[in-house]
Simulated scan of single mutants.
Amino acid sequence: MSDSVSYAEVIGDPIAQSKSPAIHGFWLEKAGIAAEYRRCHVRSNELADYIASRRVDPHWRGCNVTMPHKQAIMPLLDRIEPVAARIGAVNTVVPRDGALIGTNTDAAGFLEPLRADLAKPHYFRMARIIGTGGAARAIIAALADEGMVLVVAGRDPDKARALLDELDPKGEHHVAPLDHFAAATEFAFDDRAGCFDLVVNATSLGMVGQPPLNFDFSHVPPGSVCYDIVTAPLETPFLAEAKARGLRTIDGLNMLIGQAAVAFERFFGQPAPRDDDDALRRMLTA
């Protein structure tokens, strides 16, 4: 690791678990870019000093930001891009013309595997979103902008309503308690031809070491796409059941790689080389 080479990095506390160095390192090698992508353990009381030191480092190309710094870093920056201001969190910082710019690539990363679907015309689009945390904020904002009617479920329905009122106040959206989707329903779905239905687990439920997501598939319209942002395990019980029912599934690596690709271009000035995504996925899951 050279002190004179251009580099970007990921910061957080903890940071050892981050897959970002593997993803960006893979792309840097494929693109033949003489730069590095590192991880840097930054505690909350070290964040201001970290930003001050990177401001004057000519080799620093920016950083990704993980928990617990996504909100705390915002006052330390010179400008927050509108997408990050709306979501209320910064996950990417880049230096530009002497200023530090904060943005958020989660919304774009989440939408990437849905782009072909969203490019088609639909009579009606609905997404059922489980969760009201930080990831859910980005997902709600992204899907509302795509003209989807949202049903947001959380332990606290008032929090879900507040999120919708903040992120898309003109939308005709709905809220539900988390346990609404855990119990079976006898609701008879109408003809879904020409509709686009999406079900998203935007929580850590189902992740290794976390409780399972209690979800009854009687709530899922025929032909739905089921999307889980959890990355460990990659095939969660939620996705495994969706697949067994013949539904299309999208796993958490899609969002992770998608948001990293947006950041990569901001850091290194050229698009991420995506021709070998299958090899990248194999490396990340080995």
Results as ranks from 00 to 15, higher is better:
1 M>F: 11
6 S>F: 12
6 S>W: 04
7 Y>W: 14
10 V>D: 07
11 I>E: 09
19 K>Y: 14
19 K>P: 00
29 E>S: 15
36 E>S: 13
43 R>P: 10
55 R>Q: 03
56 V>D: 00
57 D>T: 13
70 K>R: 05
81 E>F: 12
83 V>A: 13
85 A>N: 08
99 A>T: 12
100 L>M: 15
104 N>P: 02
108 A>P: 10
111 L>Y: 01
116 A>M: 04
118 L>P: 07
119 A>F: 02
122 H>S: 12
123 Y>P: 03
128 R>F: 12
128 R>S: 04
130 I>N: 00
141 A>K: 03
143 L>R: 04
147 G>E: 07
147 G>M: 11
149 V>P: 02
150 L>W: 05
156 D>N: 15
169 P>N: 06
176 A>R: 14
184 A>K: 12
188 A>T: 15
190 D>L: 07
192 R>C: 10
193 A>M: 13
195 C>E: 15
198 L>F: 00
200 V>P: 02
208 V>F: 10
208 V>T: 15
219 H>T: 12
226 C>H: 06
229 I>N: 09
237 P>L: 13
242 A>G: 00
244 A>E: 14
251 D>T: 15
252 G>L: 10
255 M>C: 09
255 M>Q: 05
269 G>Q: 01
273 P>F: 03
273 P>G: 08
274 R>Y: 03
275 D>E: 15
280 L>D: 06
